[in-house]
Structures are given as structure tokens and as C-alpha cells.
Amino acid sequence: MEAINLKEKLDLFSDTWTPKIVGNVDDNHVYLAKLEGDFIWHAHDDQDEMFLVVDGRFRLDFRDREVWVEQGEMIVVPKGVEHKPYAPEICSVLIIEKADTDHTGGIDDPLRKENHERI
């Protein structure tokens, strides 16, 4: 049990849309990720997903609205809700979701990563 310095961990990588595992909470992974530009429309049928903005801001697009999430804010996307993250500039987020969650909701796309690196 050691403290995890999020800034130090974020300094270890620069790639976007590639979550890095920094811890576990029960059956959930705690990820850090950098977002920039558009991701893809997707949903997680059986898992909720939580985003906490560490640095910057991003927008979560839903089919019926858009929600900006600012530094220091968090949002939970309930299971089954289609969404698409968008960050106009680089944004760092902490994500908590079940360890077996496919981050594109099973959609085959070049942004899809099947194995996440632990840092």
C-alpha cells in the first residue's frame, strides 16, 4: 500500500485514448488516460463508467445532450447509455470501471485497445 502520485504517472506516457492501469478496487480497474479529439460512439451494456478530470476538460456527448466535465469534476455514465467523449485539447482523466470492460463497448475500431498496460 503506497500512495500513487497521479501527476508522476501521467508524465510516464503521452499517447491518447490508451488507458493505463494504476490500481484496482475490488473487481474494478482504476485507469489514467489522456484524451484529445474525438472517440467513438459506444456503450457498456453491463458496466457503469466513472470519469474524473485530473487536468483540462472534456465533453461527453450523449444522443440527447452534451455535458462538459471540467477539472476537478466527475461524471458517471450508467450501463447501457451510449456516449462519445471529445476533448478539444489534451485532457487527463481518472477512470474507474470493471476490469473486464471493453473500452469501446466491443466496437472494432483502430482506437480499441484490448490489453491495458499497468504503470
Results as ranks from 00 to 15, higher is better:
Asn28Ser: 11
Glu97Arg: 06
Ala99Pro: 06
Gly105Tyr: 07
Thr104Met: 14
Met1Asp: 13
Asp15Gln: 12
Lys98Thr: 07
Phe39Cys: 01
Val76Cys: 15
Gly80Gln: 12
Arg112Asn: 12
Leu94Ile: 15
Ala33Arg: 02
Glu73Leu: 11
His44Leu: 13
Met74Tyr: 14
Glu66Asn: 10
Leu94Pro: 07
Asp64Tyr: 06
His29Ala: 05
Asp64Cys: 08
Val69Tyr: 04
Gly23Thr: 08
Asp11Glu: 15
Lys113Ser: 05
Val25Asn: 10
Pro19Thr: 00
Lys20Ser: 08
Thr18Ser: 14
Leu35Ser: 00
Ile21Asn: 01
Val76Met: 15
Ile40Thr: 02
Ile75Pro: 01
Cys91Gly: 02
Glu8Ala: 14
Asp46Cys: 08
Lys9Ala: 12
Gly56Ile: 04
Asp48Thr: 10
Val81Phe: 01
Arg63His: 07
Gln47Ser: 14
Met50Thr: 07
Leu6Ser: 00
Glu89Met: 07
Val69Asp: 00
Ile21Cys: 08
Cys91Lys: 01
Gln47Trp: 06
Cys91Phe: 00
His83Thr: 05
Leu12Met: 13
Ala43Pro: 06
Lys9His: 07
Val25Pro: 04
Val30Asn: 02
Gly105Val: 12
Asp45Cys: 02
Gly105Ser: 11
Ile75Gly: 00
Met74Arg: 08
Pro78Asp: 02
Glu70Cys: 06
Gln47Val: 10
Ile96Val: 15
Asp11Arg: 12
Glu97Cys: 11
Asn5Ser: 15
Trp41Ser: 04
Asp55Trp: 04
Phe62His: 03
Leu32Phe: 04
Val76Trp: 12
Asp61His: 11
Ile4Ala: 08
His116Gln: 11
Asp61Leu: 06
Glu117Ala: 10
Asp48Cys: 12
Ile96Phe: 03
Ala43Phe: 09
Lys113His: 13
Val93Lys: 01
Asn115Thr: 14
Glu117Ile: 14
Arg63Thr: 10
Leu111Gly: 03
Arg112Thr: 07
Ala33Tyr: 00
Glu49Gln: 09
Val77Cys: 07
His42Trp: 02
Asp26Glu: 15
Ile107Cys: 01
Asp26Lys: 14
Asp64His: 08
Leu94Gly: 06
Trp17His: 02
Asp15Ala: 12
Glu89Ile: 07
